[in-house]
Every structure is written in structure tokens, then in C-alpha cells.
Design a protein around this nucleic acid. Structure first.
Lengths: 151, 151
DNA sequence: TTTAATTAGATGTACGTACATATATTTGCA
DNA sequence: TGCAAATATATGTACGTACATCTAATTAAA
């Protein structure tokens, strides 16, 4: 769908203005796709993101701060998302022996299995819904990183 | 900043996978810029979005459903955001005479002035922070709309 | 015309973000 | 050593999203 139809307007100042709205909407659209997919697995897209981050270091465990530094949304409240992952027994929470301030998080076996199912489901849905190829994606990546001038 | 540095990883499956994360992050980064700017004005970015939508029809008023259909985040809870705009006296809420189910929203003079200040502040911050030109933005727009295959 | 179905909006709950503050622990320095 | 500053995490609150449910009003159909 064209952005004009999505937002029921074509009052864009210029292509730059339109691009900002287009990025916000595409992000919403993708999160919505991911969320629907993760719902079948029984987790939220944010919980999925944390499982994915933990998998990157597995079988090493990670402390809360290191998880937080890898989040897309930098002001995510990681302890609270972890509460829910612990409740679902997808991760384990212990206190570090070396530094008792640190909380150490590790994936459980169930967590690993759940993540595997989530990754498979996501790959399938992305294949269906994402309409650009690898070369186009590379152009997109260059433009997005150029866009974030002050980042 | 490169996405690798933002997320402290370079474990991307391919450019498509990277592009999905890049869009999510760029959206976060833009919303963060807008939010900081709007904070000086005393509104949130979502409240700003609604003021902008109302301006599109002004001096005509709009009902809640029509505002909702123009939101970027389609599952926004518009009545609740309107509560806060009414409390700040930036919009007025009345019941439609023709259809008493409908709530009619109109901008107040203060609302119009606030929106004007918000738009000016946003234009200024965008000029500083957004690093692509109109031609690049046009390419971005084409790629994003191609990406959303099933939308 | 009387009622069932639909529509518009409001409201409740779980989850997440943004941000301020609190608590425990560790570090660094006088 | 002793204490102030810094660090890691948890927690409280306001705001927003996602989704279910409720109420009032309108429309449509028997």
C-alpha cells in the first residue's frame, strides 16, 4: 500500500518528510508482522529480541547491562522484560559471584527451543511479506545509515 | 553510527535481515529526536501527530475514527491521547448533533499555536539531524514501499 | 415497528518505553 | 582504612500500544 493510502493524505512537504513518515510506518508494519508471528509462540517481539541477544553469546551468560546495550530500543526496561521471560522459564536469573551487583541471565533449554521455533517462524513470515532482494536491501542500509547523520 | 556499533554485533544473516533491524532502529532514533524536540513544547510525539492530523482538515473538525484512520500506529488508542490534549486545552471535544455516537474534535487557538511552534522546532531539528537529500529520500521511499509487499 | 446487528467511542488489563529515584555493591581517593 | 562517588539493577509513575469488552446510538431486517 502506498503511504498516501496508509495515512489518507498526500500533504507531504517533500520526499524527505515523506521518508520520515515512511520509515515510522514501515517499522510499525514490521513490528506488527513480528508480533503476530511471536504470538503463536507465546512471546512478545521484545521478549524475542532478548532471547536473540542471549543466543548471540550462548552458552555464555550475559549481565543485564550487556543485554540492554544490544537492544534496538535503547531505553527498554530490560529487568521488567526479564521478569516475564523468567516467569515463562525461558531464561534463568542468578547473581554474579564476582560482582554481586550484577544479575546474570542465561537461556534455559526451553528458551533455546522456543527461540529456534521463533526464528523459523520469523524466517517464513519474512519470506512471504518482505518484497525486496539482497541488493535493494544493501542500498536501503546505506541510505538509512546516511540518514542518521548525528547518530 | 553503523548498525554494527549500535547493536554491538555483526551477526546479520544477510542484507535483508540487516535492513529490517536498520529500519527498526532508524525509526526508534527518529522518534527519539522528535520526542526530545516535543518535550520542550510540552507534548509527546503521539500528541503532536494528532495535532498535525487535525491541522490537515482545519478549520473543519474531525471525529475520533477519522483521526485514528490517519495514525501511523494503527492500533493507537486515540480517545486516551485525546484525554491529554483536552486536559492541555489544545483540542476541544464535543458530541456530534447528527450522530450522537460520534465525538467531534477540533483544534483550539492554543492548539494551533502550539502546533506551529512544534512544526518549526521539528523542521529545525530535522535539518540538523537528517543526512539525506530529496533524491536519496525518493529512492528510500520507493524501496520502503516495495519492501511492504503484503501491505 | 420492534428487535438484531452494526458502529463509535470509552474503558480495563497486560506489556513496553521514558525517565526519575532507590538500593546494594564496588571502586577510588583522601 | 574509611567514606564519597560510581555502577548495576530494581522499582515507581506517566504515557502509549495491543487487544478485549462495555455502553450508547444508529441502521437494517424480520
Amino acid at each position: 500500500m502506498k503511504l498516501e493510502d496508509v495515512l489518507k493524505t498526500n500533504k507531504f512537504n517533500d520526499e524527505i518528510h515523506k521518508a520520515t513518515l515512511n520509515i515510522l510506518y514501515t517499522s510499525y508494519w514490521m513490528r506488527d508482522n513480528v508480533s503476530s508471528t511471536m504470538k503463536e509462540i507465546g512471546i512478545t517481539s521484545e521478549q524475542f529480541n532478548i532471547l536473540r541477544i542471549l543466543k548471540g553469546k550462548h552458552p555464555e551468560a550475559m549481565c543485564v547491562k550487556d543485554i540492554a546495550s544490544r537492544m534496538i530500543e535503547k531505553s527498554s526496561n530490560v529487568p521488567r522484560i526479564l521478569d516475564r521471560l523468567v516467569a515463562k522459564e525461558l531464561v534463568m536469573r542468578t547473581t554474579s559471584k564476582e560482582d554481586k551487583r550484577e544479575t546474570i541471565i542465561s537461556l534455559t533449554d526451553t528458551g533455546i527451543q522456543t527461540l529456534q521455533r521463533a526464528n523459523d517462524a520469523l524466517a517464513a513470515i519474512n519470506k512471504q511479506t518482505i518484497g525486496i532482494n539482497n541488493e535493494e536491501a544493501a542500498v536501503l542500509n546505506q541510505l538509512l545509515e546516511k540518514l542518521r547523520k548525528t547518530d
